[in-house]
Design a binder for these strands. Sequence first.
DNA 1: TGAATTTAAATCGCGCACGATATAATGACA
DNA 2: TGTCATTATATCGTGCGCGATTTAAATTCA
Lengths: 152, 152
Amino acid sequence: MTKAAKEDLLNLEKFLCFSIYSAGHAFNRVYKPLLDKLGLTYPQYLVMVALWQEDNQSVRSIGAKMYLESSTLTPLLKRLEANGLVTRTRDPSDERSVRITLTEAGKTLRDQAEEVPACILEATGLDVETAKRLNRDLRTMRDQIDAVVREL
Amino acid sequence: MTKAAKEDLLNLEKFLCFSIYSAGHAFNRVYKPLLDKLGLTYPQYLVMVALWQEDNQSVRSIGAKMYLESSTLTPLLKRLEANGLVTRTRDPSDERSVRITLTEAGKTLRDQAEEVPACILEATGLDVETAKRLNRDLRTMRDQIDAVVREL
DNA sequence: TGAATTTAAATCGCGCACGATATAATGACA
DNA sequence: TGTCATTATATCGTGCGCGATTTAAATTCA
């Protein structure tokens, strides 16, 4: 290993994982004022996006798309239910499964959230093409990491 | 807006923030077995990297580098102290400040952690140059977002 | 059919992360 | 100097996120 490479191992800013970690927190900070108006947290917003994309999903389906466990989703979905945005009902055709369905308020919220993605993109300072490339690279990396994790 | 762009607003996978969010979780998953051996969590590991880089920092200094609040760091550092990796002592020249200093065990742990970054890089499936570019782009984006957040 | 396995959610305990607030020490400056 | 503002850390409450475990339903297959 070169000397420069060794020094990189001592520099937190040179850690790719830390850039992801700190960028994630930065997104949280910039989303907060926008989502406060909607009464949503950042993870709740992402779940709502998933439901606006496809309503009436099972907890399992949402978890698969978001890479989250039921132990994370169940309480979060209960909060969305308590806030009147979704309903949680056992699937009659398979009583193990719980279907999450948007209420009218949950559907309506989508209109109020319409401006959010453009605001966020603007805050990143990235042009659309760069954002797309970054996005693609990150998804590829994530999927590669998860492939490694699965074979452990 | 084009039709394709509108559809992207409904597709969670096309959200840059979600790629960061899910990639962050993926890193957590792949780090876990490696860090379990060291008795560290992922955020604790990042704090240790910061301390290996520069020992005897104040809580404030660590927080500035890691973009974390004292309300996050104080309990985390107390756990590191309880595990014998650091000491926490008030700075005699400014009693408001707490200096975090590596113990011998904390210093020694660095050797055991030596292999970790290479293992992680390998799991990402990225070559060194791509990882560097991605890293640079993410830091730039994070700093840009934080600049926007500060002027709110 | 009936026992054993698998699957889906839920629950629990722990650690992170933040905002709001408290406390104590330092600095500013009238 | 004494008051007022600022700074550094700590504390509290809330919500994520996971692993381990539990419960109940569905599936497998002997």
